[in-house]
């Protein structure tokens, strides 16, 4: 039996009166690849940001490897854990952003090495080796000394993936990672993610690339108005959509 990596239960999140997540339950086992689709404003990015603890949430529990992250519950009282623990909990997941967010003053290799050295306290030599390993893995073996400004969007995003995964997270989170890319650069990034999926990386992917979601996922989730409106295998979602909302959504998207 594969172990449960991520367990989200009854997740509620609102900005003031505006409810963004309205009771989301979701489980991921080791090696699972789950894609989240849905129109903008449906809460899918917020869900991902909650798992990475970039957003606070008012109700619900997120567990990684069976341990609650971000909050603690003792005697029925829920409280935020301290900043140090938040930082530790956050390191369990790796996040890749829509806008890459590479550090512009550091080279590609230094981008990957920074947290290896400062967070995991690895030596410079070991960090450099790990960085080189992942740069090769994302198809950029000789761009380690390039700065983000000297790389194309697709290359930057691949470095960002390498930076996140080099930290050896339990779970990778991808937040619309191809939305800011020119069409001809999308595939090089998706291919990297696919190859990680094949290797058994556990991943939660928010995407607008329907064909990619269809090909890569074990399960697809359709979010609408802050809840999981439908979920199933890629075939169930894309070929046999039953609900009216999902059908309408799929009709308006490219496949």
């Amino acid at each position: 039996m594969t172990e449960r990596v991520l367990e989200i239960s009854k997740l509620h999140k609102s900005y003031g009166d505006h409810k963004v997540l309205n009771g989301v339950d979701l489980d991921l086992n080791g090696g699972d690849v789950i894609s989240i689709i849905g129109s903008s404003g449906s809460g899918k990015t917020t869900l991902l940001r909650c798992v990475n603890l970039l957003e606070e949430f008012q109700e619900g529990v997120i567990k990684i490897d069976g341990r609650e992250i971000g909050y603690s519950n003792s005697k029925g009282k829920r409280s935020k854990v301290n900043n140090k623990q938040v930082t530790k909990d956050r390191a369990l997941t790796g996040m890749v952003f829509q806008s890459f967010n590479l550090f512009p003053h550091l080279s590609a290799a230094e981008n990957i090495m920074l947290a290896l050295r400062k967070v995991q306290k690895k030596s410079k030599k070991e960090s450099a080796e790990i960085a080189q390993h992942w740069l090769e893995r994302v198809g950029l073996p000789d761009r380690g000394s390039s700065f983000p400004g000297q790389l194309s969007g697709g290359q930057q995003q691949r470095v960002a993936i390498a930076r996140a995964i080099a930290m050896n997270p339990k779970l990778m989170l991808f937040d619309e990672v191809t939305s800011a890319l020119d069409p001809e650069l999308i595939n090089e990034v998706l291919d990297v993610i696919k190859s990680l999926a094949v290797e058994g990386m556990t991943m939660l992917i928010v995407t607008h690339e329907m064909r990619f979601a269809y090909e890569v996922s074990k399960k697809v989730i359709f979010m609408n108005d802050g809840v999981i409106a439908e979920q199933g295998t890629p075939d169930e979602i894309f070929k046999n959509a039953s609900s009216e909302r999902l059908t309408a959504f799929l009709k308006n998207t490219r496949f």
Binding site: L54, N83, S99, P104, V119, A160, M167
Partner: peptide
């Protein structure tokens, strides 16, 4: 400095002061 910079720093596990010293300050100084 774009918010994405501090978020990316947080996401790779850097704490507040590390983020300041290694990510935001070097960019701000320039």
């Amino acid at each position: 400095i774009p918010k994405g910079q501090t978020e990316a720093a947080k996401a790779v596990g850097l704490g507040f002061s590390q983020t300041f010293i290694f990510v935001t300050l070097p960019q701000a100084l320039r």
